[in-house]
Structures are given as structure tokens and as C-alpha cells.
Simulated scan of single mutants.
Amino acid sequence: MSEYQDYEFLAVDRPLTEAEIAQVRALATRARITSTSFVNEYHWG
């Protein structure tokens, strides 16, 4: 059995600063991160 997970977040109140993007990047190195979005996909199995 295989599994697929998709996590997506959008900033609704304000864009992330460069420092905040760096903090998020430290937690999720494979994610696509911009000042207004975060997208991470997992495939395994």
C-alpha cells in the first residue's frame, strides 16, 4: 500500500519575512516556500 500526503498553507494576514521563511525552511527542507505560501508533498510506499 502506498500513501500520498499534500500540505498547503497560504498567508492571509501578511507575507512572511525573509527571517520567517528561513525558520520554516529549517523545518521543511523539501517544501516550496514563498512569502505567501508553503507546499509540501510526501509520497511513499
Rank of each mutant, 00 (worst) to 15 (best):
F9M: 13
A11H: 02
L27N: 06
D6H: 15
G45Y: 12
E18A: 12
R32E: 12
I21T: 06
S35C: 07
T17R: 01
A22T: 03
A26T: 13
W44V: 07
V12Q: 13
R25E: 00
D6W: 03
A31N: 02
A26Q: 13
S2I: 15
L27D: 04
E18R: 10
T36M: 04
T29Q: 09
E20Q: 10
P15Y: 04
S35K: 13
E20L: 08
E20G: 13
Q23D: 12
R30M: 12
E3M: 02
I21R: 00
E20A: 05
F38Y: 15
R32C: 05
D13Q: 08
H43D: 07
F38T: 03
E18T: 06
W44D: 15
Y7C: 10
E18I: 00
A31G: 07
E3Y: 08
A22S: 07
A11E: 04
G45N: 13
R30C: 04
R30L: 05
R25W: 01
E18M: 03
T29A: 11
S37P: 14
V12D: 07
N40A: 08
S35D: 15
F38Q: 05
E8N: 11
Q5V: 01
L16A: 04
D13L: 08
F38L: 14
S37A: 15
A11Y: 03
F38G: 02
E20W: 08
R14A: 07
A19F: 03
V12F: 11
A28E: 10
Y4Q: 06
Y7W: 14
E8C: 04
A28D: 08
Y7T: 08
Y42E: 01
R14H: 03
I33Y: 10
A28P: 04
M1A: 10
A19W: 00
H43I: 09
I33G: 03
H43R: 12
T36C: 09
D6G: 05
W44R: 11
V24R: 00
R14V: 06
L16S: 12
E41H: 04
A11T: 00
A22R: 06
E3R: 07
Y42V: 01
L10P: 02
S37H: 13
L27C: 09
R30Y: 12
T34M: 08
S2N: 13
A28V: 06
R25C: 00
S37R: 15
V12I: 13
V12A: 02
I21P: 02
A19H: 05
R25Y: 10
N40F: 14
